[in-house]
């Protein structure tokens, strides 16, 4: 019988530096998110994407709405704006138009972006505003105690659907594509470098881009739907996700117990609001 080497004893090292530290307000860590929540992983993937892009941090601004995902802004050592519920996208629109050289990223949740903020999402996509929208979708309102949201599957139990949800959820990928987003991808927090790649593509793509990140919410959604711990939700992703690039967004519905698509759905080019505006402004005498 092979003898396993004795467990290596660790050294104790002071003044450590996490590889992402330069992007983080480390004096605010650890963050507020629950054990097993996917937000921290999504945030970390976003920071790896920024690292890969090599952008000067002073050219990046992040705007969040309200909710658990809305707290992302507060942990970033960047110009960050934690705005009102649902209004991150119009705030980001103003910021981008006032300072076109800035990379403006909206990082928020499914309830914030698609219920109270749904109108802003479709219109920013329609006008091809040059911002990237990252949506962490945990299928419910986590911070307020686990109420049903615009992505909650039919039948799912939440604190405001105690008998099961009677509403049909949005297919966010299809919604974004239909509204005019020029880049649309979906990943889960289990996707590691695949998620980083999608974020790098979305951030560097000109125009309105959208990445949906499926994430566990064990405290609220997972618990009420008997999905187990965050770990169990990730196992569920591993067993049910089907990686497919270029799929029809209409096929990207998510239903409990059924396979679901992840991958890149849309990657097109079209003129942005700013490009059209600035071209006309130059023509008529202003600088735009």
């Amino acid at each position: 019988m092979p003898v396993r080497a004795a467990r290596a004893a660790p050294e104790f090292v002071p003044r450590v530096r996490h590889p992402l530290e330069r992007w983080l307000r480390t004096d605010r860590l650890p963050h507020i998110w629950c054990s097993g929540c996917g937000l921290g992983t999504a945030l970390s993937a976003f920071l790896y994407a920024l690292d890969e892009l090599g952008w000067d941090p002073d050219t990046v601004a992040v705007v969040s709405g309200i909710g658990c995902a809305g707290r992302v802004a507060g942990y970033l050592r960047l110009d960050t704006y934690h705005t009102t519920h649902g209004r991150a996208i119009p705030f980001a629109t103003g910021l981008k138009l006032a300072k076109p050289d800035l990379h403006v990223i909206v990082f928020s949740g499914d309830g914030d972006l698609f219920a109270i903020g749904g109108n802003h999402f479709i219109h920013a996509a329609r006008r091809n505003m040059d911002i990237a929208v990252i949506c962490v979708n945990n299928f419910n309102y986590g911070m307020t105690g686990g109420q049903l949201g615009p992505t909650t599957p039919v039948g799912a139990r939440t604190t405001t659907s105690p008998f099961g949800n009677f509403e049909h959820p949005f297919n966010l990928v299809h919604l974004a594509a239909s509204a005019g987003a020029t880049y649309v991808a979906r990943c889960t927090t289990l996707d590691g470098r695949r998620l980083q790649k999608a974020l790098v593509e979305a951030l560097s793509h000109k125009g309105f881009t959208f990445v949906e990140i499926l994430a566990p919410c064990p405290t609220n959604y997972g618990r009420r739907n008997r999905l187990g711990e965050g770990l169990d939700e990730l196992r569920y992703y591993r067993e049910h996700m089907v990686i497919k690039h270029g799929a029809d967004p209409k096929e990207a519905d998510i239903a409990p117990g059924k396979p679901f698509l992840v991958g890149k759905f849309v990657d097109i080019q079209k003129p942005t609001y700013l490009e059209l505006y600035q071209a006309k402004a130059r023509e008529i005498g202003g600088e735009g």
Partner: peptide, 30 residues
């Protein structure tokens, strides 16, 4: 557009004031 400024018609007044706040943090008078 003729004097180097930015105009945008938003989807509602909530978006309009939110954009104004964003623009102000972008350094413009809005």
């Amino acid at each position: 557009p003729q004097i180097g400024g930015m105009f945008i018609q938003m989807e509602d007044e909530i978006a309009a004031i939110a954009a104004v706040l964003g623009a102000s943090w972008g350094g413009m008078k809005a």
